[in-house]
Computed example of a mutant assay.
Amino acid sequence: MPTAGVEFAKVSYTPAGGQFILRDISISLAAGSTTALLGRSGSGKTTLLRTVNGLVRPTSGGVTVNGQSVSAIRSAADLVALRRGIGYVIQETGLFPHMSIERNAGLGLELAGRSSEDRRARAREVIEQVGLDFEGLHERLPWQLSGGQRQRVGFARALALDPAVLLMDEPFGALDPLTRGEMQTMLKGLLERMGKTVLLVTHDLDEALFLADRVVILSKGGVVADLLSGDVARSQNPHVKDYVSAVHRMVGR
């Protein structure tokens, strides 16, 4: 049986002076699996995602990544080491506008002190893995690429250090439907080949079912559904049924 790549144990989070955002969440993500987090805006999806790389510290409970307790990390050096093992992809890519595509893709390697030769070789590898032409694009700046190309570079950068865990927060939310579909197909192929432990935040049920092995739905900071993707359509869980109905309300018209 696969070991847990990421485990949430009774995780709760309440910001200082505020109301709770997460409440008593316990989920174990098997190594090499892809899990989609769905739910309304404000349900706690992104906050839960950010507890994995230490951007959010739970008020109670704990998170472990490949057996290492995130909550126990105290030094900046240990936190940097943790984050180097976790790829992070966001909706707007976060590429540095003054840096070339090659340098953006290899930035993590640069910060880790890798040689220029290693950085260039690895940047070429990951840029080509995400379906881009290295020779044609590596010297360009982000503004010279399409939205889909920029997002591919964002994925390349997240993969450059070969992380065991990949966090994705609405990575395709800003893309048009056709580009989004192309990106989903590209990503599915990558994930099948690489065997990363993936946590994907999305509002798109079809995207979740296409990419993920498992779907977890949050509501008001808690887990209200946790099931295999293949069980979603026939689930009698009212939260799942409401989600399916809302997303597919035009089917049959």
Rank of each mutant, 00 (worst) to 15 (best):
T34V: 14
L38Q: 10
S12H: 04
A31W: 00
V63P: 14
T34S: 09
V6K: 06
T34R: 14
T47F: 01
T46Y: 01
L49D: 00
A36Q: 05
L48W: 06
E7Y: 07
V11C: 02
T59F: 10
I25R: 02
R50D: 06
G39C: 08
I21K: 13
V6Q: 00
R23A: 06
S26L: 01
A16Y: 14
I21H: 12
G18F: 10
V52P: 02
A30F: 06
G44F: 05
G54V: 05
P15R: 11
V63M: 10
G61I: 08
S43A: 15
S60R: 15
A30P: 09
K10N: 12
S33G: 05
V6F: 00
G39M: 06
G32L: 03
T51F: 01
K45I: 00
D24T: 00
A16D: 14
N53T: 04
K10E: 14
L38F: 12
S33H: 13
R40C: 12
T14E: 04
V52Q: 08
V56F: 07
L29K: 04
G62P: 03
A16Q: 13
G18H: 13
T35N: 07
R50Q: 11
R40D: 15
S41Y: 11
L22K: 10
V52C: 02
E7F: 03
L29F: 10
G32Q: 05
G32P: 06
P58Y: 08
A30L: 14
T14P: 01
I25Q: 03
S33W: 03
A30I: 07
S26N: 09
I27D: 12
S33R: 07
P15G: 07
L55G: 08
R50P: 00
R40Y: 12
G61Q: 08
N53M: 09
S41M: 11
G18S: 15
V6I: 06
T64V: 13
T35H: 05
T34N: 09
R57Q: 15
S12G: 14
G32M: 07
T47A: 07
S26E: 07
Y13F: 15
F8Q: 04
V63E: 12
F8G: 03
L37G: 03
S60K: 13
V63A: 12
G42C: 10
G61M: 10
G42W: 13
G62Y: 11
T59M: 12
A31L: 04
T51M: 08
S43D: 01
G61D: 13
S33D: 02
I27K: 08
L55M: 15
T59A: 06
A31H: 04
A36C: 08
K10V: 02
T51A: 10
N53S: 07
G32I: 09
N53I: 08
T51W: 05
T34W: 07
